[in-house]
Design a protein around this nucleic acid. Structure first.
Ligand code: MN
Ligand code: MN
Ligand code: ZN
Ligand code: ZN
Lengths: 138, 138
DNA sequence: TCTTGTCATGATAACGATTCTCAATTCCAG
DNA sequence: CTGGAATTGAGAATCGTTATCATGACAAGA
């Protein structure tokens, strides 16, 4: 997947590139470039933050990663290979993220787009609220 | 509306504040602080960009304006007084914005939130695509 | 109307996230 | 091996936004 993408565009393999890819794949959260950089620094000290950004963008453009916002200011990346599209429910207090997919909502978005003569390209749906453990009791 | 809000918090009226409010109200688009500043500069030269930011934030906190993102990097503000909640359809090429409201989608978001034991606070739904005039013919 | 304490403002510095620049390094096809 | 091309790290630069701070405007009371 990455290999063919690199080949097609005469991009090279590199130790850091591989390290970033596997660190990202090992990650199970919606991660920030900085967070990933911190993790990587343990095994690969000296790796630059800019390189993490560069490669994350690369992973995104070849479909291995997907950038999402989740409300915060820093961009977050999630796995995109063999991952169904989904939207997010985010706790505004602790940041907990729940992924969901509602096909009726998806369908309606299609119809809204075509009703207004738009060719749907993508959409972002984020629901923010307080999760059970953050909700004040009583 | 603004007046009572200001009074409650011992904030003052001011020429610029009024100017910003009315310029904003006159605006029919989803405007950027910088765009509004540019417009204001015609009638009120010398008004600072920081002041526009400050007051736009104020308008938002008293319910006269609402901040939305619409995909770009700069925050945009839209009227919020006597305005029903709605979501946006945005042309990824020319930036055209269409507002819509789908009550079934709204309802489903409620149910998704409660299904996961979240207390819904807000949501953001943005559909991106190409509008009719931007879509390549062929 | 003058006084005064408070709030608002403009200029500009600071910020955080991200990208860019560029010289040094690493790749890899030949 | 080599040479040319791609990659990298460090740090500068960018962009939108906020913070600082000295100065000006406001409103309420004397
Ligand atoms: Mn996700
Ligand atoms: Mn709108
Ligand atoms: Zn929570
Ligand atoms: Zn368009």
């Amino acid at each position: 997947m990455l290999a063919s993408f690199l080949a097609e565009r005469k991009l090279k393999k590199s130790k850091r590139r591989d390290a970033i890819l596997s660190a990202f794949l090992a990650m199970e959260t919606h991660v920030t470039a900085e967070e990933l950089h911190r993790v990587l620094s343990a095994e690969h000290p000296g790796i630059g933050l800019a390189t993490v950004y560069r490669n994350l963008k690369l992973l995104a453009s070849c479909g291995l990663a997907k950038q999402v916002s989740l409300g915060g200011k820093a961009a977050r990346f999630e796995h995109a290979f063999r991952h169904r599209h989904h939207d997010h429910l985010v706790c505004s207090r602790c940041g907990k993220v729940v992924e969901f997919l509602d096909s009726e909502i998806e369908r309606r978005q299609e119809s809204i787009a075509s009703r207004h003569d738009f060719t749907l390209e993508s959409h972002t749906l984020e629901i923010h609220g307080l999760c059970g453990s953050c909700r004040p009791p009583r």
